[in-house]
Structures are given as structure tokens and as C-alpha cells.
């Protein structure tokens, strides 16, 4: 005959044990509720964890961000070379640059530099491409607005013409090295 599993043994719980569970249930209920009340009451005396963002933080949140934080993009048109590398690398085409040959000035000018921050995913590819550091991330991040068009940042005003920056022609590597050596010597003395 197969042995029965001990758990399946059908034995009657004695009456007095049931009676005791009745009272132990009451005891558990009372003591746990009491304990729970002490815990919640102690929480009334604790410091709240809330950070009251935007206006009641000890420092403005903008100032507490790390230096390499990726906030809104910003462009310094005066050092932009209008190479349009940023426009070409941007995977979602947020950047629109328009540049053309100006008849009066007889040279290339930029007439438009828009970045649609509503589309931007802050990947940072554009800033890595830029040879002059004209396009960079700021600490600004509060983008809520009632009109999504407000998030198209225009760095060149309508009708304005900006002459692209020209990187000074690089010296020959040897000459450059000599110059730095001279500079180092000067510093030593």
C-alpha cells in the first residue's frame, strides 16, 4: 500500500484550539493596529521628502545641474561657419539652416538658423559635429508652453543676414610646433 503524504492526513482540529485562534485573532488585530498607528503617527513628525519644484527649492534647479547637462540647444551665430554639418547629422531634421550668396556683400550669408526643440531628442550629435563649438547645450530645460511653435528657436532673426565665421587658416604643422615651443620657453623664463 502506498504511504499517504502526511499533509493529506485528515485530522480534526480540537475545539479548544479553534477557540484560542479566536482570541489570538483579536490580539493580533489589536496589536497590529496599535503598532501601525504608532508608525503612521511617527511619520507625522518626520521631515517630508517633497522637493517643491519650481519656486521653493533652496537653489534654482537650473544651477544644480551637472555641467554637461543636455538642455536646450543654443547657437552662437557669430562663430558659426555655416557648414551645415549639424543640419546634416541631425537624425530627425530639427535644424534648418538657409544660406545663399548675397549679391550686395558679394559673399555667402546665413539667413535662417532654426532649431525645433519640440522634435529634438537631445542626442548631442549636432554638437559633436560642430567644428567651432557654435552649437552647444545649455542648462535650460523648462519647455512647457501653450503653443508648440514657441519651441522653434530662431537664432537668426527674419531678414537679418549673418556672415559666416571663417576659421583662420591653419599654419604648417612644423611652424605651429616651433611656435608652441617658443611659447613654452617664454613661460619658463
Amino acid at each position: 500500500m502506498r504511504e499517504r503524504h502526511p499533509r493529506s492526513v485528515n485530522f480534526e482540529i480540537p475545539r479548544y484550539i479553534l477557540f484560542m485562534t479566536y482570541f489570538s485573532n483579536i490580539k493580533t488585530a489589536v496589536s497590529t493596529v496599535f503598532e501601525g498607528m504608532t508608525i503612521t503617527f511617527s511619520h507625522l513628525l518626520r521631515e517630508p521628502m517633497t522637493i517643491q519644484y519650481p519656486d521653493r527649492t533652496p537653489l534654482p534647479v537650473k544651477d544644480t545641474l551637472p555641467p554637461r547637462y543636455r538642455g536646450f540647444l543654443c547657437v552662437r551665430p557669430e562663430i558659426c561657419t555655416a557648414c551645415t554639418l549639424c543640419q546634416k547629422t541631425c537624425p530627425i531634421d530639427c535644424i534648418v539652416i538657409e544660406h545663399s550668396k548675397d549679391e550686395e556683400l558679394k559673399q555667402r550669408v546665413m539667413t535662417r538658423f532654426d532649431i525645433d526643440m519640440a522634435k529634438c531628442m537631445f542626442c548631442g550629435l549636432c554638437t559633436e559635429q560642430c567644428s567651432t563649438g557654435a552649437i552647444y547645450f545649455t542648462n535650460e530645460f523648462e519647455a512647457s508652453t501653450s503653443n508648440i511653435k514657441d519651441l522653434v528657436f530662431k537664432f537668426i532673426k527674419q531678414g537679418e543676414k549673418v556672415i559666416p565665421y571663417k576659421i583662420p587658416r591653419k599654419k604648417k604643422p612644423a611652424a605651429a610646433a616651433a611656435e608652441t615651443q617658443a611659447a613654452a620657453k617664454e613661460k619658463k623664463e
Binding site: M37, T38, F41, L45, R46, E47, P48
Partner: peptide, 20 residues
């Protein structure tokens, strides 16, 4: 009750703020 409350506070090393 209040002894237990104090015990809870002490045991969790909570930072206190009594101002309601």
C-alpha cells in the same frame, strides 16, 4: 503609544520636523 512613536523615530533615525 507615544513611547512606541518615539521608538519608531529613534529606530529609523528619522529626521524630524515638528512644525505641522
Amino acid at each position: 503609544f507615544f513611547y512606541r512613536v518615539a521608538w519608531q523615530l529613534k529606530n529609523t533615525k528619522a529626521r524630524l520636523r515638528f512644525n505641522p
